[in-house]
């Protein structure tokens, strides 16, 4: 789906989202009111400049539009992998971006992420995955690493990884796997505005991805292990 079509479907009441290179920024009109829109397109690799720019926009919304919901549109292959980005401390820029999104949450902004293209790696962690709710349009592509590359790195034969992937959501790329793990809350299909309105209407909840992964059978240990560590007494007590 083109970005124009995506925005048209999300905001039938109109929007003022402009495109600056691979960055989307502006506002959309929904029945709930003005929505701040911040997004990425064309699978862009996020380097230091773009990470800083995204953080600027999050802080601007917190400062100038208290409480306004934020929709992040995710289409990124990951962080830019370059020597220069590492020399300049890209992990620090992405950490700052994640902290800015947390500030927005603490300040009462509901944050919804919609994966409309690709989502992977550091830039997905620092922006999309920091949302209160993560959704994806049908056909979105979520991954850590494709199986041939994983086979090369882990020295596990490709055929074996492919066979195991049929019975487990953990290994292979794919939207359905991220739904099973509880990471993606739901898949939106047309009309997208309905999905957005429903998400904006729901109250903010704490991070329940592990619990959803348990309910959906894709991640059975994350929630019970976290719970045990959070409440049990220590050895010797």
């Amino acid at each position: 789906m083109s970005v124009d079509e995506l925005l048209r479907q999300l905001f039938p009441g109109g929007h003022a989202v402009r495109r600056e290179g691979d960055l989307l920024v502006g506002t959309g009109r929904s029945p709930a009111g003005e929505i701040a829109v911040l997004g990425l397109c064309d699978g862009v690799d996020v380097g230091v400049e773009l990470a800083l720019r995204l953080a600027t926009e999050v802080l601007r919304v917190v400062r100038d539009h208290p409480g306004r919901p934020i929709l992040t549109l995710v289409d990124t292959r990951g962080q830019r992998m370059s020597k220069r980005d590492e020399v300049l401390g890209l992990n620090g820029y992405l950490g700052h971006l994640a902290a800015c999104v947390e500030l927005a949450r603490q300040a009462g902004h509901k944050i919804v992420a919609l994966v409309h293209g690709q989502a992977a790696s550091g830039s997905f962690l620092a922006l999309g995955m920091m949302a209160d709710e993560i959704h994806a349009v049908d056909g979105a592509s979520l991954s850590v690493m494709n199986l041939p590359a994983m086979s090369k790195v882990t020295k596990i034969p490709l055929e074996r990884l492919e066979r195991l992937s049929r019975g487990s959501p953990v290994l292979a790329p794919g939207l359905a796997n991220y739904v099973a793990l509880g990471c993606v809350r739901s898949i939106w299909s047309a009309p997208l505005a309905a999905g957005l309105e429903a998400a904006l209407a729901r109250p903010v909840e704490p991070d329940r991805r592990a619990r959803r992964g348990l309910e959906r059978g894709g991640r059975t240990l994350a929630e019970p292990v976290a719970r045990r560590v959070s409440v049990t007494t220590t050895h010797g007590e």
Binding site: E102, V170, L181
Partner: peptide, 20 residues
């Protein structure tokens, strides 16, 4: 990588928990 998708979601949960 041997738990790729569960691993990245886990890192995200750690990140959110640190910030909380």
């Amino acid at each position: 990588l041997q738990e790729a998708n569960a691993g990245i979601v886990a890192v995200s949960e750690v990140m959110r928990a640190v910030l909380a």
